[in-house]
Design a protein around this nucleic acid. Sequence first.
DNA 1: ATGAAAGCGCTAACAA
DNA 2: TTGTTAGCGCTTTCAT
Lengths: 336, 336
Amino acid sequence: MVDVARLADVSVATVSAVVNDKGGVSDERVKRVRDAMVALDYHPDQIARSLKVGKTHVIGMVVPDITNPFFLEVVQGLETEALQNSYSLILCNSGEDPQRERDQLSTLFSRRVDGVVLGCTDSSSAYDGLIRRRFPLVFIDRLPIGFTGGAIVSDNVAGAHEATRHLIELGHTRIAIIAGELRLSNGIDRVEGFRKAMQEAHLPVREEYFSRGDFQIESGYRHGLELLRLAEPPTAILACNNKMTLGLMRAVGELRVPCPEQVSILGFDDFEWAANFSPKLTTVAQPTHEIGRQAMKMLLSKLKPSGGDSETPADSLVVLRTELRIRESTAPPPAR
Amino acid sequence: MVDVARLADVSVATVSAVVNDKGGVSDERVKRVRDAMVALDYHPDQIARSLKVGKTHVIGMVVPDITNPFFLEVVQGLETEALQNSYSLILCNSGEDPQRERDQLSTLFSRRVDGVVLGCTDSSSAYDGLIRRRFPLVFIDRLPIGFTGGAIVSDNVAGAHEATRHLIELGHTRIAIIAGELRLSNGIDRVEGFRKAMQEAHLPVREEYFSRGDFQIESGYRHGLELLRLAEPPTAILACNNKMTLGLMRAVGELRVPCPEQVSILGFDDFEWAANFSPKLTTVAQPTHEIGRQAMKMLLSKLKPSGGDSETPADSLVVLRTELRIRESTAPPPAR
DNA sequence: ATGAAAGCGCTAACAA
DNA sequence: TTGTTAGCGCTTTCAT
């Protein structure tokens, strides 16, 4: 920078002003500085700038499972929005491991990220401290139980409810669910929506039709096999996320159970390839990109309290609508 | 830091030594410092550290298409390796847009990343400058034509060759290819492998069987429709990447062409769901995680020339083997 | 074994 | 409009 200043025969303050479009610099000097900058191939050092201004213009995102297309799409939405506001993204994957999540958060803080978007893995209250200290943090997809603070989630209760109703309206009565992790809000809410719909239709939730998975492919597969091998198997199965749906479909395929003739499959989470399966999957689509975009917006509103137009309220729970996409994997139950 | 020093009643230099495990500090003082650190919930400021030492311990990765599971898996491999060496990752998506790629690279440099892993979008020679200036840069998956420098790629020629041979051995003679972008090495090489195998078998590459896609789903779909609607359609189709394979499968499904009975499909790139399609897809699997891991290793070897044991040579072209995974989408051609 | 002090490249008062 | 200068929080000689 001093080199640029010297070459342009101005002070470093002037160079700084030019670099940051501060104005108040005569056109002629602006030109001289600009020329010197290209002549020296000068790139302003964001690190030094960050140290001085206390802001890095970097936000951290920690996702529980980068393998999951759902989070990928969220990341995309986030990235788009971040880019537009010239924020960079440090991406971390906790792999559903609370300890790793803590580590990642810690390095993120050390790197002085301006804010964090978090798909939490834990329902611990370790976050409370951060929130109380008003560290810009927004949760996505899942909430620790009893959580208050900024978050963007899908309406999991309504989504599961609508999905179950669809099955019921098709005439199913023997409906099974492969639930997910029940320590986080999303798993809980989806089960709740399911139960609600069943209850409203005066349908029992049989114990053997309720399986508790862990959101991974393998558990969808294993529980799928179990359910389909029951003496009286369900005629419809709701899988509570994309990966478990995948595992379930594998089970269906291996057992050669005709779908949807023999069993209807409905999966939570839509993904790009759901429409390419045969049969094409009926799914509950979450507005993934929108989740990412809104999360970034909420974060931005926390970062610059200047924005008086609270387009995205800074500390609210935003619940986004899901959409039932009816395709080919759901149909009326087989006639007996 | 001064607070910690004060509380522990030592100098900041001592605190620094403790934080960085420098040794040469009496046990008693180490303990005092450690206690003070937790008492004050002190997190060392990496930004300030970076400014001082001139290294950020951050590496940048710019991928051409974050939507593509291939790059995702590469990112995973990279992330794993990076984490183990306590590097963080700034992830950028160029969206196959050379201009955006340049912008992303520029901000990455401003952020003083220690190195960059790049899936380039352009075959421009803009990279030469960087390379000459010995900026730590490693390419993955694709190379600008005529490129020299560090890179990790798959053996695309051999992969496509093996795939095509598989089709030929099955008895196919009317084999079509949906090629990808031909300005980058990967697209070119896959076509070359295909041509080579055809030539060796004295099979013609008919013009109407050679379609030029762009690596996106849509183009796989469109070209798929075209090929399948030909008066004399091919009995086997090789799609040159995962997304085009997906589009192709959609075309196959819509046209209700029995696969593999009527047409065999072979896709470049394996992905987690390839085995869940029906029919299960025969694919050429690239060692995605390995690409990421090796890329990071190569970068590391450039970052610390200390490592005399050149486990990963710093500036070589590493070509990784692909693996043909034969599943259900390829079979002998229909009897006439 | 420990501490004092000089910067890393930048920004933002403040002065001129 | 322009320049001088004091730090931002850390590391690292160099004394002690």
